[in-house]
């Protein structure tokens, strides 16, 4: 006997994400989900972003890692409230942040006193793309020390994100990296995607990125 089910496997997560989205809208907090592979410079990008946004834009960060509070310690220096999520223990753990984890973390933040909440997801270009956390926008960070073909290898991530950051452009003179090929690969997967080429180390290129971010807060 066949019983029709027709249910999305991620229903539970999607329901929780919708609740988060409603809560964030009520509190007028814009939520950005930042994703990338490990080592692309998400935390460094955030450090500089926070230093340029705070205190004008009241920002908090939820940062996900399998292990350690290293990233939270770095980001807390900006004065922004930072919540570190450890998804596992030494042997490894969850490869992404799920909506219920964000709900728990957000309950420890004074949302009424925030304009922007940035979620630094676990470094991984596969799994986080599949999990809605109730965010308003998604940004994928890649860096010029990775392959130009990353967007072609991980198309889902580049499809689900609204913007892309290409980081570490200060290193371009020392590398064989073809940034035009990288940009063209991003646009092949996600035509018309806004791309910000910047260096978290020097600050070059941050104006366009911050202008985009600030525009989102006004919408």
């Amino acid at each position: 006997m066949e019983i029709k089910v027709v249910r999305k496997v991620l229903d539970a997560n999607n329901t929780m994400a919708a609740q988060n989205r409603k809560l964030f809208a009520e509190k007028k907090v814009f939520v950005l989900n930042m994703m990338s592979s490990p080592g692309s410079g998400k935390t460094a990008t955030l450090e500089r972003t926070l230093s340029l946004l705070m205190p004008e834009v009241k920002t908090a960060v939820i940062v996900g890692d399998i292990c350690t509070s290293n990233d939270a310690d770095r980001l807390a220096k900006s004065g922004a409230p930072v919540i570190q999520i450890n998804t596992g223990d030494l042997s490894g753990g969850d490869c992404h942040l799920a909506a219920h984890i964000i709900a728990d973390a957000a309950s420890n933040l004074d949302l009424g006193n925030l304009d922007l909440l940035i979620v630094e997801n676990v470094g991984n270009l596969v799994c986080p793309a599949e999990f809605d956390i109730g965010e308003n926008a998604r940004t994928v960070v890649l860096s010029v020390t990775e392959g130009e073909d990353k967007p072609l290898k991980y198309p889902l991530m580049f499809r689900v994100c609204d913007t892309a950051i290409v980081n570490k452009i200060d290193l371009l003179p020392y590398l064989d990296y073809d940034i035009h090929a990288a940009v063209s690969n991003i646009l092949q997967v996600h035509p018309q995607m806004p791309i910000f080429q910047l260096s978290a180390k020097t600050g070059h290129g941050f104006d366009a990125w911050l202008n985009w971010l600030k525009r989102q807060l006004l919408i």
């Binding site: 006997m1 066949e2 019983i3 029709k4 027709v6 496997v9 499809r159 035509p191 018309q192």
Partner: peptide, 22 residues
């Protein structure tokens, strides 16, 4: 060649049905 497209299918992750032994 337009880049303005919608994905109609391909992101599914769902249980359509279960079959129980008679």
């Amino acid at each position: 060649k337009s880049g303005s497209i919608v994905i109609m299918s391909g992101r599914e992750l769902e249980i359509a049905s279960i079959e129980i032994a008679d």
